[in-house]
Computed example of a mutant assay.
Amino acid sequence: MKKRNLLKTLLYFSVIIVIIAIIGITFMYYFSFGRFETDEEQFPHYVGYINQEKALLNDTYTLCGDRSIYKTHHGAPDDAFEGGKKQFKNFILSNYKNDSYTDSGYLNFRFLINCEGNAGWFEIIEMNLDLEESPLNKSMVKQLLKLTSDSKNWAIFSYKNQPRNYYMYISYRIENGEIVEILP
């Protein structure tokens, strides 16, 4: 009986050692060969980087603390909207006025929200429906920038019980001057 328990223990121990060895070899392989090289010259910044010197509305508010930006890889759609996305969408659609705009395409805003819930540091990307960069009506863009940047739309994001600066993006799909979809 003792011999059987000893064999069982040795078997479990051997399986654990093999699993640890496989994990170790996998990590060594990844860090030696499997990881893609980053072209630091072509891509000098992190995902979600916004040049704070060139961004629109960069002088209205200040970033808090050490100016670190959270949620840079995907934005903060679940945490960002004050009152939820439905309230944001209702605000935009009820305040947007189509002044005979005929443009169709996507209007994308990438921006930062500081620890006080103030939106600024906007980067704007305008595209046609084929996703090619193409200018949209300046008045329409200005109107949507004003609506999007309204601070009552944005929540304060906290991490470790501290309010933080974070990254966000909004894309408007526009057809014949009308907003048909707001992403995310």
Rank of each mutant, 00 (worst) to 15 (best):
I124G: 05
N161W: 08
N128F: 07
E53P: 02
D150R: 13
P163K: 06
D39P: 01
L129H: 01
Y96T: 02
E175H: 02
I170K: 03
T62R: 15
Q52D: 07
F27Q: 08
I170H: 03
I16Q: 09
K54F: 09
E116A: 11
P163D: 07
N98S: 09
L131N: 13
F91E: 04
G117W: 04
S158N: 15
P44A: 03
F111C: 06
D39R: 00
S171P: 03
G117A: 01
M1D: 15
T60S: 14
K146L: 11
I17A: 08
N108S: 12
T102H: 10
N161D: 14
G34Y: 05
I124H: 10
Y172L: 02
K3D: 10
L145T: 06
Y96H: 04
S149C: 07
I20V: 13
Q162V: 14
F88K: 07
L136C: 05
E132Y: 10
K97S: 12
K97N: 15
G48V: 02
L57G: 01
I50A: 03
G65Y: 13
V141N: 04
E37R: 04
N5H: 13
D78F: 14
I17Q: 03
I25R: 08
E116W: 10
N153D: 05
N118T: 08
I22T: 13
C64S: 15
D39G: 00
